[in-house]
Design a protein around this nucleic acid. Structure first.
Lengths: 254, 254
DNA sequence: GGAACCATAACGCTGCGTTACGGTGG
DNA sequence: TCCACCGTAACGCAGCGTTATGGTTC
């Protein structure tokens, strides 16, 4: 039995446009084509092919994948590999959706509590050459003095400025390392150290220069990391950006 | 502090092209534009805007959504509604991924057992006017006789043909209803009944006219439905398509 | 002769990446 | 003068939906 495209599309539960598109891709060629009118004719066996295509598509396969998997040259091996890939994608997509869900629930909670949600994003930073002074202090405010010492010693070039935090109050002592970016031309040595901030993947967020806000933002980044398969890798960074502070948590997978 | 697009893109962890695109959309306008050279200049506060955009995007928002949510005319209400929508989407996406996972695991199992996986798809069928004869029989083969009676009584017009199964062996008795599609012009009444197959959403799959294959396919559709929030709604249908049988399970949500 | 069906061709959607081509800044 | 940087403009991607225009079948 032969069907014209309209009837076949109704039987197959798919649009005419899609059928023409699949024909053009070579994914589902009509069983016959009238040479004069170019009318497409499909047969009942092709309903099953179509169902196979739709089923694979519903599992997340691309039309290219499907074309390869259904082609005559395709082996059981290849079909299996396609399913394995699709399985993997589905797994990733499930965990991603799960994380999104948990994060949104957290954000909705904060909103209900009258606070604004803290946007946290992932960012890659390449390595930066810096001059720095590392110091232990009694309270965070004491770090200001160290920063001023550094700025006096180094001609600041308009590059990045900030602080690396090696230990924070929770660990019993406070240890920080103010730094400023320096150009490649080697400057004279002085009271400061020349090092290189390693390149890193980082979770970042912004906060006002205000202790209360800082605490919220630190907590938010911690929760963000907690939802993902990352761990902290190295000292946290705070970058000065005008009136704003960018908080960076360097990460490594696993 | 002002940044040119290249530096800003590095600080923000996003491509130059994307920044220009966001400018064009009005999503993130540069703080200043040089009138002569058209160079874009961004400031540090825009890093935070950018992070907000990226964070929302990561939660699945479209750029349009984000533009509305971050616009000055947007209220807390609207931002909340956006999060609710995103939450809903994430939930759908999670269950969809979960179903895909379970289904693929089933298919991989069948493949390992040496069988081919059965493609099952959802399909909408509109209502069809049919002539039919309903009958109880002792074994499935007896239904052939009823089908022949029907075909003798009705001028078959090349439309759909098949059987509705009201009861199957598992329920103790077998009751089926062979039918053939008829045109709108009312035919004479005879030994058959005129009814209308209601329109329905159906889970369908194809099988060879072979009892063993039929059993596999019925099982596959059952499992398919089991993974979703559907229930059976009415008699199953079998449609004859040349050498092929299309098995249809009518469904209703919940 | 008109309604329903078929055909091809071309543009639209998202969210950018990717040339191509030319002006700027240091 | 060179090279890195900036600009606009236009096409490409997936998977079709949506006209626009014209032939075919009943």
């Amino acid at each position: 039995v032969q069907y014209r495209i309209g009837e076949f599309s109704k039987l197959g539960g798919i649009s005419i446009k899609t059928l023409r598109f699949y024909d053009q891709l070579g994914l589902l060629r009509p069983a016959a084509v009238d040479v004069r009118t170019q009318y497409r004719f499909y047969d009942s066996g092709q309903l099953r092919e179509l169902a196979t295509i739709r089923a694979l598509k519903d599992l997340g396969a691309s039309l290219d994948d499907i074309k390869l998997a259904l082609g005559k040259t395709a082996s059981r091996q290849e079909r299996r590999k396609l399913l394995d890939r699709l399985r993997h994608r589905a797994e990733c997509s499930r965990t991603a959706a799960q994380r999104t869900l948990l994060w949104i629930d957290g954000a909705l909670g904060e909103l209900s509590a009258g606070e604004r949600a803290v946007p946290v994003v992932l960012k890659q930073r390449s390595s930066v050459r810096v001059a720095s002074i590392r110091a232990q202090v009694i309270c965070y405010a004491d770090m200001r003095q160290v920063e001023q010492d550094l700025r006096r010693a180094v001609p600041l070039a308009g590059g990045l400025q900030g602080v690396l935090w090696h230990r924070c109050a929770a660990s019993g002592s406070i240890e920080g390392e103010p730094f400023v970016e320096i150009s490649d031309r080697a400057p004279r040595r002085g009271t400061y150290t020349l090092t290189e901030l390693p390149s890193a993947t980082m979770a970042i967020a912004y906060c006002e220069p205000d202790d209360l806000d800082a605490e919220r933002v630190y907590g938010a980044i911690d929760r963000w990391i907690g939802l993902r398969d990352y761990r902290l890798a190295g000292p946290k960074r705070e970058i000065y950006l005008g009136q704003l502070l960018e908080i960076q948590f360097p990460l490594k997978p696993a």
